[in-house]
């Protein structure tokens, strides 16, 4: 069975979420729960670090779509960093770079939030 888990870190008012493993239809609810609990805590500035993510499917991307408006409505955002080439290709294929800011490293993404202020 595919494995997937998330972990979190706070840097100022930015929450960094680390994704680990395979994000597909089977594991998408895990990420959904993670995002939901952040929204419940009124945390809308997210940097998602995909360094340890091996695979993402449409259902996984759907979770990002489902939360992006909520974050932006609350003056936050979901910024993506450190994805490997394979994962980036899937993001790119479906046109995500148009809508999401994608960074090479986590620091830049976090900094971008403070720049926005």
């Amino acid at each position: 069975m595919t494995e997937f888990n998330t972990s979190k870190k706070e840097i100022g008012d930015v929450n960094v979420v680390y994704l680990n493993g395979f994000l597909d239809a089977h594991t998408a609810p895990v990420l959904e729960d993670t995002f939901s609990s952040l929204v419940e805590q009124n945390k809308f500035k997210l940097v998602v670090n995909l360094k340890e993510l091996d695979y993402i499917s449409s259902a996984g991307l759907g979770v990002f779509m489902a939360f992006i408006e909520k974050m932006r409505e609350n003056k936050g955002d979901i910024k993506l960093t450190s994805m490997n080439e394979k994962v980036f290709n899937i993001f790119d294929l479906l046109g995500f770079p148009l809508l999401y800011e994608i960074f090479d490293n986590e620091e830049d993404a976090v900094k971008k939030f403070s720049g926005d202020n």
Partner: peptide, 14 residues
Amino acid sequence: KLLIYSIIGQFMIS
């Protein structure tokens, strides 16, 4: 839920 996630992820629909 999965139906929706797959579609909105594939086609960038909100």
